[in-house]
């Protein structure tokens, strides 16, 4: 009996210690993080997997003395979080759905802050012969060759309602195909339903083509034998924007801090950080800063508004 009591006491003490005295934040600060203010941002996997948020987070947290909770999910899910009021801000890359979100009254204070390009990557041997042609032409060729030779030519779609997936669908539309036709067109078209990383991995394994943003592609840590094949085309423009969830819909939203985040991202300091990100490691920028109106260059229709910081 005595042995058990001793063991039991050790157990309980360890438990109490673990529960109450383990620091929460990564910096190991002793203050319990639940006392600090929290800002929740939903973002896409392409912004997250590159490590951009890991890079910006501590700087932002220190500057504003806030705990930044970055929740990543596909663009579709992120928008859902926003619509439900579970996050305070969104940072995604699907113009069409962003506009709809704002129109429905869920989002306010949208600002572009970074951009890069989508690229079509594929196996070196390029069985469908799409190297350096336009994205629309490439897609046309892919479906033609894919239907003819499904063993040689394959395409892996994100198939998960993400920003990347949305863009893919748009290009199919531009190429003159209804999306469900494409889906049913044959075994060459594979819907992975996965994040970008696992999709790239799959494409790598089976030698398939896929659409990916330059940031994620460069930052992917695994060894890929895929190479970029189609890099230019206005359909490949990828603009990241940030916006706050409308406090009129959800009064509890931390609108002040959300605005701080937006302003931070488009501030000189923020833009500089975004522009520098990845250069040392990958030899090139992963994101081109395009806040404060610079998005005019990439054709943003609301560049005037993007130019103004949020009040």
């Amino acid at each position: 009996m005595k042995k058990l009591s001793l063991l039991g006491i050790i157990f309980i003490l360890a438990f109490v210690y673990l529960t109450f005295f383990t620091g929460e934040s990564a910096t190991g600060s002793s203050s319990s993080s639940s006392r600090k203010e929290r800002l929740r941002v939903a973002t896409t996997t392409s912004l997250y997997d590159t490590g951009l948020w890991d890079y910006l987070e501590p700087i932002f947290e220190k500057k504003f003395n806030v705990e930044l909770d970055v929740i990543y999910a596909g663009t579709g899910i992120a928008l859902e979080y926003g619509k439900r009021g579970d996050v305070d801000a969104l940072a995604i890359h699907d113009r069409v759905r962003e506009d709809e979100f704002i129109k429905q009254g869920y989002g306010i204070n949208r600002r572009c802050f970074a951009c890069n390009y989508f690229i079509i990557v594929g196996p070196k041997i390029d069985p469908a012969g799409i190297k350096d042609i336009s994205p629309v032409a490439a897609f046309k060729k892919l479906i033609q060759e894919g239907e003819k030779n499904p063993d040689k030519v394959k395409f892996i779609s994100r198939g998960d309602d993400s920003g990347t997936h949305a863009r893919e669908k748009k290009i199919w539309e531009k190429a003159g195909y209804e999306y469900d036709t494409v889906q049913k067109s044959g075994p060459w078209y594979i819907e992975a339903g996965k994040g970008m990383g696992p999709t790239l991995l799959m494409a790598n394994e089976i030698g398939a083509y896929t659409l990916v943003d330059t940031g994620t592609f460069l930052a992917y840590k695994g060894n890929l034998r895929l190479i970029p094949l189609v890099r230019k085309g206005k359909e490949l423009l990828n603009v990241y924007a940030v916006m706050a969830v409308n406090p009129e819909k959800y009064p509890h939203v931390n609108i002040k801090m959300a605005n701080n985040l937006i302003n931070f991202l488009i501030s000189d300091e923020g833009q500089k950080l975004i522009g520098e990100f990845g250069v040392e490691r990958y030899g090139t920028q992963l994101f081109i800063p395009c806040g404060r109106g610079k998005c005019k260059k990439v054709g943003c229709p609301t560049w005037k508004e993007c130019a103004k910081p949020v009040r």
């Binding site: 929460e24 934040s25 993080s33 890991d54 909770d69 929740i71 990543y72 930052a219 840590k221």
Partner: peptide
């Protein structure tokens, strides 16, 4: 949980993230 770094990230969700990033 949201797999939030420093707050709700646990071993299993971290594994999931690293796979996503290619850090097998």
């Amino acid at each position: 949980g949201g797999n939030i770094k420093g707050f709700t990230r646990v071993l299993t969700t971290a594994i999931s993230l690293e796979i996503q990033r290619g850090e097998l």
